[in-house]
Write a protein that binds this DNA or RNA. Sequence first.
DNA 1: AGTGTATGCTTGATATACTTAGCGTGCTTC
DNA 2: GAAGCACGCTAAGTATATCAAGCATACACT
Lengths: 131, 131
Amino acid sequence: MSGSTTQGSSGKVTLGQYLASIRTDRKLTLRQVEEATNKEVSNAYLSQIENDKIQQPSPNVLHALADIYGVDYGQLMEMAGYITNVKARSQGQRHGRVATFANHTLTPAEESELMDYLKFMRSRKKTSDKT
Amino acid sequence: MSGSTTQGSSGKVTLGQYLASIRTDRKLTLRQVEEATNKEVSNAYLSQIENDKIQQPSPNVLHALADIYGVDYGQLMEMAGYITNVKARSQGQRHGRVATFANHTLTPAEESELMDYLKFMRSRKKTSDKT
DNA sequence: AGTGTATGCTTGATATACTTAGCGTGCTTC
DNA sequence: GAAGCACGCTAAGTATATCAAGCATACACT
């Protein structure tokens, strides 16, 4: 965590406080940020975020802000209460033969058609279940 | 851009289709998943997600599902329309589609059947789809 | 028959992210 | 003082994710 902002002695820094301190640091107005994000984040909405009226802004909003502020997206996500743990699952057994598909490099069209066919296959199997 | 019209049956694999195929693949019921996620995702809600009634489930919901399915959280985030990484916003990932297949388990029987169908597909339509 | 149970799905209600319009204040410049 | 304008902020509305119940069908058992 960055203790960059003068958060004093009180508890944790909220997302709103953090975002507000960055903006005032950069001497930007709410409307300037609104412009910078191409209206993705309205000044009114940003105000609500900064005053913690919004509990969990959407990731894309956070991304826009992280982008123009030049701060870490993941950190904002975390402060907003999202799980950011992109932990590598132990996906050991899952592959195997399926890798054959990876070799083939399906086009999107092919993939969707295969996907449809897979659904069809499985709906067929419902009647004659079991291996 | 590739024609992103209201495709409905064929076209891109939606998040719902993907999640549904995984669950049926694992032979889990909606309520079993609800239990597995510790009620984080209700069966009713999961049903709506799988039928694409929900446009953008929250990251935490996606995380719960990614967790119990053992699939990549970031991929689900992407399929849900969230910005995941600060990289290539332009085009980049034509993979991750293939990963759709690679990530969840196909039975050997299903795989060979799909392979056959893929051959059939390719022998039939020679439209080179390049995006 | 009937009763029970499990499945996927829908319906209605609530919470909350987000939008749009506008307010109050302070600062210029007339 | 008044007009104009930028600032942060708020109030009211809309959209949508999520919850709580329940419905319909299918299958099992007596």
